[in-house]
Design a protein around this nucleic acid. Structure first.
Lengths: 212, 212
DNA sequence: ATTTCTATTGTCCGGTGTACAACAACGTCG
DNA sequence: CGACGTTGTTGTACACCGGACAATAGAAAT
């Protein structure tokens, strides 16, 4: 009987817990995550989780690594250096789209993970191939990474907040005399295609790197 | 007598509270902020604060607006369009340096404030002056804003975490066979001047905009 | 002097992370 | 086959949190 009960709920494990953490964060956001409700979801007492993870922070750390390790960098191994740079940027952006509520936390995470170094390594190799000197490679790496993460961050924040429609209406309410240029561009801003804009940004950076 | 006591602690006000919130966040970070300790700092009972701000969220919202409104965009009004773009980027970065622990929260804030629109307006005017067409201006605006915020975010995260020295040591521990390019650049990475790198990124973007 | 309003105090509730001790189930070995 | 130590889970406890609500003190107005 007890055995049957035991079978109902598979035994806990680090992986199982982290998967539940990720699910909870995707659904309700990082700040809504609580050890108690997490335990409830897993059908277990809160403190049981502490057997596998030493603290809530460790859970968050674990989920950050989990998601980063999911990031597929394989596409960035082949092709022209420009294509590889684009591919790396899109890989980062895909992570943001897959887990929008985790992404700000992930980006803000103080410690650098191995996977992050891999991303930079891919960037550096591509930029070496582009024929840039060492100083410019380092700066270009920072530029590209900052752009890709900043763009994605802005995207996911807009996506989880009061949604974009609100902002779009807001655009019309700006006083024309203080925001003439914004009003001139209002049409384009409303019809903005983020996929396209992201790609255009990368292309501008690439153009700047080859022009200099 | 009671008057004297009254004089000891100036009466509460929204501004006074928000200033204390900002001080607390600068010192201990956003997640360490508690209404109770805040009230303690102000020599008042916790619930007194709720007379001026309806919730803790409102305090955070208020402090975000406060800091954004501090942002000095006046320098971006004159000079060559390139100079103005640089000036706007640096204004954003200065905010991050002034309040590193608030900055991630600020950047992640879902609602767009007036001041943020002013920054974009400045950007759009400069880019119009550069002779770009409407579509390219919108993309360039996104590119520049994403870069400036992404770069600054990475900076402040590194600054408040276990500090940069730790990462620098970490660089040497990466396996050479998997990270050859990173190792080739290790010297440059260790000696990285962030001010210079930030400027170099802007210049690359500007070059890309004028080249295309 | 009495009323009215404003700012502050007190009390209360449900929820949080997690330290610590107890306990049940299990594999291993005598 | 039976005792034992390990592993995984339970249960209790504590100090903290944000915030709703009612009660009150003090100043201003009448």
């Amino acid at each position: 009987m007890r055995r049957a009960k035991h079978r109902e709920r598979p035994p806990l494990s680090r992986e199982l817990i982290l998967a539940a953490v990720l699910r909870a964060i995707d659904d309700e956001g990082v700040e809504a995550l609580s050890v108690r409700r997490l335990a409830g979801d897993l059908g277990v007492f809160p403190t049981a989780l502490y057997y596998y993870l030493p603290s809530k922070d460790a859970m968050l750390r674990g989920v950050v690594e989990l998601v980063l390790d999911e990031m597929d960098l394989s596409l960035a191994a082949h092709g022209d250096w420009r294509e590889r740079v684009r591919s790396l940027c899109h890989a980062l952006r895909r992570v943001g789209h897959a887990h929008p509520r985790l992404f700000p936390y992930l980006i803000a995470y103080p410690e650098i993970t191995l996977q992050e170094y891999r991303l930079y390594e891919g960037l550096y190799r591509a930029l070496e191939e582009a024929g840039l000197d060492a100083a410019r490679i380092v700066h270009a790496g920072n530029l590209i990474f900052a752009y890709a993460s900043g763009f994605t961050l802005a995207e996911v924040n807009a996506a989880i907040g009061p949604s974009t429609p609100a902002e779009i209406d807001e655009l019309g309410t700006l006083p024309v005399e203080e925001f003439p240029a914004t009003h001139r561009l209002a049409g384009r801003l409303r019809a903005l295609d983020l996929d396209h804009s992201f790609g255009a940004g990368i292309d501008t950076i690439i153009a700047g790197l080859t022009a200099g």
